[in-house]
Nucleic acid binder design. Structure first.
Lengths: 126, 126, 126, 126
DNA sequence: GTGGTCTAGACCACT
DNA sequence: GTGGTCTAGACCACA
């Protein structure tokens, strides 16, 4: 379900957080679905339970999942009043990537067509 | 020239790296321009020279600048054979951001218009 | 009668405890009224009976209800010699909240008007 | 600076979080002040550094402090656009306390005078 | 069984 | 020196 890359500069818990965000955003995990238990995921990823725990509590504090203690963690409902700070941070991350693409010599046209492709592809899934 | 934000989650050295990337990508710093010396920038930003040094090494290893020992650091020429791995990584980072924006409820239209704005803005400068 | 919110950070048993405290404090449940049986409430709320049992024990230990074995749980009489330690703890909890509200930029006036509203609203019900 | 009560039902890290919130809200710690280092506080409170770390990262995610990695943690500036969810949660906590005070037999008048006292006292400090 | 907290002790990146 | 991450292993409260 989630692929870890130990060589990555991203920390393990961050990879897990981003992995779940992706699964949720893609619709593979839907509202109300149960996430694997902390211990279970820890053993499948051969990672310490504390690390999973950290990932889950981060996801919870960012409102991607909610926790029912004693039962497990579940995908939260899609917020319709997104945190503006989160949006700003996502946009600025994209902006920086675009800047670097342009510098690396990719043409405006190429970038735009690729981006449109992403948006329409993902848009369908949602 | 470069604005540091201590409250940012980004480390200082990373902010400096990204700051220079932006200056170069924007065309404010052009091919062959000399960067400030390590000591000079360190005192301007009231930052440890080691931190500046680290930023410069990183920029050099990513081929944004080159070092002439004894003279200083200079902006490298814009590559026209971009590293395909770098491109892929940039695109996938953007893709993930887009996916999250869509999940957060931003419409395809909104995203696309914002992206076009970024691209054309940056495109002019370069 | 009692609304559970699984997404709440509060544990289920705590929500039940607080729910009954509210019903009693509001006067909806009056002195001597019988609470639903453990089994009954468990099935209404689709919750494990152990959880209900725990809530009831907690309410009893805090003197909100009393148990007649074989008959059920009943609302206790309103104490007129409140435990001073309990009062102190409640006041200090309020004090801390007020302090945080002030820090968050809410004006004294706003806070006071809101508090008066709470008190008079609750006061009527009791 | 911070008093731990091991008997409290509050977890240690939560007591530390609330302790710092209080110090900041009271004005004892002002904007830009440095918090004790993780290791230092850990040894003064004879608590594991991880526990302090958790407290600090919680305070950071709630925007009470900001972190400069390699330098330390500092009190953030007072937000003027408070998180409405935070306000709601503070108000509802107060409301519940008031409800219980009323049930315990404290009169409306007593409560209100006590609350006014709190507000005006704290208001002066800020 | 679930999540949550805590300790002990290690290692890394950044300043 | 600073904070941040990770492991190993324990214990608790809740369902």
């Amino acid at each position: 379900m989630i692929q870890l890359d130990l060589k990555s500069r991203k920390s393990i818990y961050e990879q897990i957080v981003d992995g779940f965000k992706e699964l949720i955003a893609c619709g593979i995990l839907k509202e109300g679905d149960k996430l694997p238990s902390v211990r279970e995921l820890a053993s499948t990823l051969t990672v310490n339970p504390n690390t999973i725990q950290k990932s889950y509590s981060r996801l919870e504090s960012e409102n991607w999942i909610y926790t029912v203690s004693g039962l497990g963690c579940f995908v939260a409902e899609r917020s319709h009043k997104p945190d503006p700070a989160a949006l700003r941070s996502l946009y600025s991350e994209i902006e920086e990537c675009i800047m670097q693409l342009l510098f690396l010599g990719v043409t405006e046209k190429e970038i735009l067509s690729k981006l449109q492709e992403f948006v329409s592809e993902r848009g369908k899934q949602a």
